[in-house]
Design a protein around this nucleic acid. Structure first.
Length: 961
RNA sequence: GCCUUGGUGGCGGAAUUGGUAGACGCGCUGGAUUCAAAAUCCAGUGCUGGCAACAGCGUGUGGGUUCGAUUCCCACCCAAGGUACCA
């Protein structure tokens, strides 16, 4: 059946080709593209080998998640740009690595499995197949022999292996790097915790060597978890009791679950975390060493959020406890009028007085209903409650009331703040709302209306020994004083939190851990991969365990070192295995290294391959990954570097963010409470609801095909349509392309109609690569015309006709200017303007009737990265046996590029203008003299003498009166 | 709310980074070719007024700096991405 269709469609194509030739309608892109795609596949043109004799260049796209909707025209944008660079670099003589693969673990496949029972592996496999077919049609020069899939055991084996390495490591602040946990154990044996400067949990106790040795094996294991770079800890999650599962923030809408609308609450759960905070400082400073977009670096800086200030301890009245707060403004310590704790703060319950207990409990419960984002964004909404308890000011011993407020987050700093209403706007609002005192400690500043937050112009007052000091001086003095009396010290905190690594999901990498007496034990590297088990249900179990709780074979036998049935669990030799899986970002945090040696089954990548390819030279992907993937990947790369597993600290030298291609959604307007749809022009003043309609049913002039609409969705069958001028006109809006908005444009359809080369060039022509822009198929004819025109340069009618005679100087100028412009544009990633340059060149050569080999041959190589198929065909028509990919890139001859003269516009008060043609070889003085002598200058100046003439060489002549 | 980016003709966008705003393409208008259509080629096309030469206005809004601002500064409006378990 499939074969028949293929033959039929190819027969139709052949007929079309025939028609095209007869009528001269366009070049036969369909045959050409199939021919050369088959050629490249058969000759393995893009298979890359390590070659010591050539400089390497590694171009990488962020690999896609293979969704069920297939590729839409937005996906290839970055792939086309990177492919152009890859092909360009090959012409330039580099050994180019340009791989592709799939980030194939993910939530959608799992949700589809929950709904249909279809195993995610099957869905994923068929989605990948579809993606590959679509990708192949666009002529990408990927080296598919290195394909990776994160859900493939041969890949996730190494993801699990990296997890083990993290588990077996701790972070040494002395050497400022990760070290094997065995070395920490050795140190504990020698001298206990004294002398160890490690990143560890806040509540880590101090131990002597003797005390360490006295601990039981389990207690030692528990102790080490405080140091491991991946560790178990209590973390808050969105828990949905009705669904019995944890939800992503994404799946929670206004406090209830997106699916089903069930209530969601914050709840603590024991989960794996990654100690990314250990790397906070290196993640921050490392940004200065990589060529990534400045805005993206800024986002990462803000995300890491380093703050320098002080840690201050407050004694509590009638208690021997101390509350520790972090503040960036220790200079305002005398302005403190209350403390605020996060509702989740662990001491809330103990501190609260008996009479306040009920009110506090209610408030804490209410807060659990609110998401963190809501708590931060609803600034106007002030809420809080008094605990009844008082702290004592560390320097004055004055009583300071302790409040609870949900604007304080448990996860940041210590989960408690000292409130200085005169110096912090949120504290000010809180104080005003609850009638708490506001003490002014700033000299000559009015704080009756708002807080004064200007550090630069701060002069402290009412603060005993700090009076008259600036922010910097006061800060230093307070820290000194606090240190002396043991109530605080200088401190730095980061906004960056450790990354939660557990997911209560099926479709992810199993965590290679089993539990002995509740203590996690690693499965040895040699027994990996730990293969994802089969389950009958992809939902969490009835008692709230993750989906892997449904697996019947999910126990580790330490005598056989393999997975066995749960029935064998005996807690002596057979133990339960971790039921959570890894998050989506695990597999994507190191894949760029795997491409260097994708088929290696002995190691994640060989030393040779890593030493040769080192890092990605150019990485392309969306800026939406700024604070997720791109931060996690940097973290893992630093870690691997610390363990000498990779040769470089930065996995990608240069990064480009490509913008999204938006769909142009189409809307029909339904008159409310009726089945009548109004054409767009008739809606004014009526109550209408816009309804998405499929964009394929709408013409370029926004006219809706009503007959097709009625067929498309049955509920339109008996609807009424009110037309204007006999047409139904839809509304348009640019939105993210998605299946549910019916605005997806499939690249296959574009390739069918216009060819892959046109598609590639049009996507580049749409606008700057970094910018989001709407897709509009109508504009594609311009690019299509250009390629046809380019093809015709080589042809006289249907005959290939290229001459060997000397071309005119004019044509040589066109060629060399284009080489110059296009080369520059590629190097600056301004691919839209380079397409314009090709169009201009083709128009010029066409009107010069230029079909000389000396012009067309280099031009073909120049265009090859953009439109590889047509250029391969023309290259072979020009008589070459080798693929054009082996051709050397043309170099611009400056002789033809330089202008003989340049025009200098002269403006006078923005009113009078004239243009002076001057040779560029003139010096600054000569130009100035020429301007002064120019007769017209005198005339236009109306008898006034110019005060000065500003001459900027190669720019403009400026006369100031 | 906070962080980042963007806002230029009917549309996508260009502008050597402070120097003739609107390159290139789409669309539109007129013409050539054709029995006709498609395709192709030529000319025009920011808005307003004018037969025209020309004049006025014009880069989200309001201010500012400058001989000169799409570009720099301040305030605001709108849109997009992220906001820690979507990918």
């Amino acid at each position: 059946m499939k074969n028949n269709l293929a033959i039929l469609s190819s027969a139709l194509r052949a007929k079309c080709y025939f028609c095209c030739l007869i009528k001269g309608m366009g070049y036969p892109f369909y045959e050409i593209e199939r021919k050369w795609q088959a050629f490249w596949a058969q000759k393995q043109t893009f298979k890359t080998q390590e070659r010591k004799d050539k400089a390497k260049y590694y171009v990488l796209d962020m690999f896609p998640y293979p969704s069920g909707a297939g590729l839409h025209v937005g996906h290839p944008l970055g792939y086309i740009a990177s492919d152009i660079v890859a092909r360009f670099k090959r012409h330039k003589g580099f050994n180019v690595l340009h791989p592709q693969g799939y980030d194939s673990f993910g939530l959608p496949a799992e949700q589809y499995a929950i709904q249909t029972g279809q195993h995610p592996a099957i869905t994923t496999e068929s989605n990948i197949k579809r993606y590959r077919e679509q990708l192949d049609r666009m002529g990408f020069s990927f080296d598919w022999s290195r394909e990776v899939r994160t859900s493939d055991p041969s890949y996730y084996r190494w993801t699990q292996w990296i997890f083990s390495k993290l588990f077996d490591s701790w972070y040494d602040n002395e050497e400022n790097k990760a070290r094997p946990i065995s070395e920490l154990i050795e140190m504990l044996h020698q001298s206990g915790t004294s002398g160890i400067r490690a990143i560890c949990d806040e509540n880590t106790p101090e131990l002597s060597a003797a005390a360490w040795k006295a601990l039981s094996t389990d207690a030692q294991a528990a102790f080490l978890l405080h140091f491991r770079l991946t560790y178990l800890a209590e973390t808050e999650v969105n828990w949905c009791p009705a669904l019995g599962t944890v939800l992503a923030n994404d799946e929670v809408v206004q406090g209830v679950s997106e699916r089903g609308g069930h209530p969601v609450e914050r709840k603590k759960m024991k989960q794996w975390s990654m100690r990314i905070s250990a790397y906070a400082d290196r993640l921050l400073t490392g940004l200065n060493e990589i060529d990534w977009p400045e805005p993206l670096k800024e986002m990462q800086r803000n995300w890491i959020g380093k703050s320098v200030g002080a840690s201050v301890r407050f004694n509590i009245e009638h208690s021997d406890r101390q509350i520790e707060v972090f503040t960036t403004r220790p200079d305002t310590l005398f302005g403190v009028t209350f403390l605020t704790l996060a509702p989740e703060h662990e001491w809330v319950k103990d501190l609260t007085t008996a009479e306040q207990q009920a009110e506090v409990a209610t408030y804490v419960a209410q807060t659990a209903q609110r998401s963190e984002r809501d708590r931060l964004s609803e600034v106007d909404r002030m809420s809080g409650v008094f605990t009844g308890a008082y702290a004592l000011h560390p320097l004055t011993n004055e009583k300071v009331p302790i409040w609870i407020g949900d604007y304080v987050l448990a996860g940041y700093g210590t989960g408690a703040v000292m409130a200085v209403p005169c110096g912090d706007q949120r504290d000010f609002n809180f104080a005003t709302h609850f009638g708490l005192p506001i003490k002014n400690i700033f000299k000559d500043v009015d704080v009756s209306e708002a807080a004064f937050t200007d550090k630069e112009h701060t002069v402290i007052a009412n603060s005993t020994f700090l009076d008259g000091l600036s922010y910097a001086e006061a800060t230093q003095k307070v820290i000194e004083r606090l240190s002396e009396c043991g109530m605080g010290e200088g401190a730095t905190t980061y906004r960056l939190r450790d990354a939660v690594f557990s997911r209560q999901r099926y479709w992810g990498e199993p965590i290679p851990v089993y539990y002995v007496n509740d203590q996690p034990q690693l499965i040895d590297a040699e027994h990996l991969p730990l293969i994802l088990p089969e389950v009958t249900k992809y939902l969490p179990t009835k008692d709230g365990a993750p989906p892997l709780g449904n697996a019947t074979h999910w126990a580790w036998d330490t005598t056989q070192n393999k997975v066995v049935s749960n029935d064998n669990i005996n807690h002596k030799t057979v133990f339960p295995i971790e039921k959570n899986t890894m998050p989506g970002w695990a597999g994507s945090s190191w894949y760029f290294n795997r491409y260097m040696d994708a088929l290696n089954s002995d190691t994640f990548a060989s030393q040779e391959a890593l030493d040769y390819w080192k890092e990605v030279d150019l990485y392309l992907g969306g800026s939406e990954h700024a604070t997720g993937h791109l931060l996690y990947a940097r973290f893992w790369q630093y870690f691997l570097y610390d363990l000498d597993l990779v040769p470089v600290q930065h996995f990608a030298k240069k990064l480009i963010n490509q913008g999204m291609i938006l769909g142009e959604s189409a809307f029909a307007y339904r008159l409310d409470n009726s089945q009548t749809y109004l054409s767009k022009g008739l809606c004014h003043g009526k109550n209408v609801t816009p309804i998405h309609v499929d964009v394929s049913l709408v013409s370029a002039q926004n006219e809706l095909d009503i007959a097709a609409l009625k067929k498309w969705q049955p509920h339109f069958a008996d609807a009424k349509f009110e037309l204007e001028d006999g047409k139904y006109i839809v509304g348009r809006e640019a939105e993210k392309m998605s299946k549910s908005k019916y605005n997806v444009v499939n690249p296959d359809a574009i390739c069918d109609q216009y060819g892959a080369d046109t598609m590639r060039m049009y996507e580049m022509f749409l606008g700057p690569i970094e910018q989001a822009k709407p897709w509009n198929t109508a504009g594609i004819s311009g690019v299509s015309n250009f390629l046809n025109k380019f093809w015709r340069l080589f042809h006289n009618g249907d005959d290939f006709a290229v001459r060997d005679e000397q071309p005119s100087k004019e044509s040589l100028k066109t060629l060399h200017k284009t080489i110059e412009k296009v080369t520059q544009d590629i190097e600056q990633f301004s691919l839209n303007t380079s397409v314009s340059a090709f169009m201009i060149a083709t128009n010029e050569l066409s009107s010069q009737q230029c079909n000389h080999r000396e012009i067309l041959e280099p031009l073909t190589v120049l265009l090859a990265p953009f439109a590889p198929h047509i250029c391969e065909e023309l290259w072979s028509l020009l008589g070459h046996n080798e693929s054009i990919t082996t051709a050397a890139y043309p170099v611009a001859n400056p002789k033809y590029v330089q202008d003989d003269s340049k025009e200098y516009p002269i403006s006078f008060n923005g009113k009078l203008r004239f243009t002076l043609a001057l040779s560029t070889s003139l010096s600054k003085d000569e130009i100035e003299a020429a301007v002064m002598q120019e007769e017209r200058t005198q005339t236009y100046l109306d008898g006034k003498t110019p005060k000065k003439v500003i001459v900027v060489p190669n720019k403009i002549v400026n006369i100031v009166v």
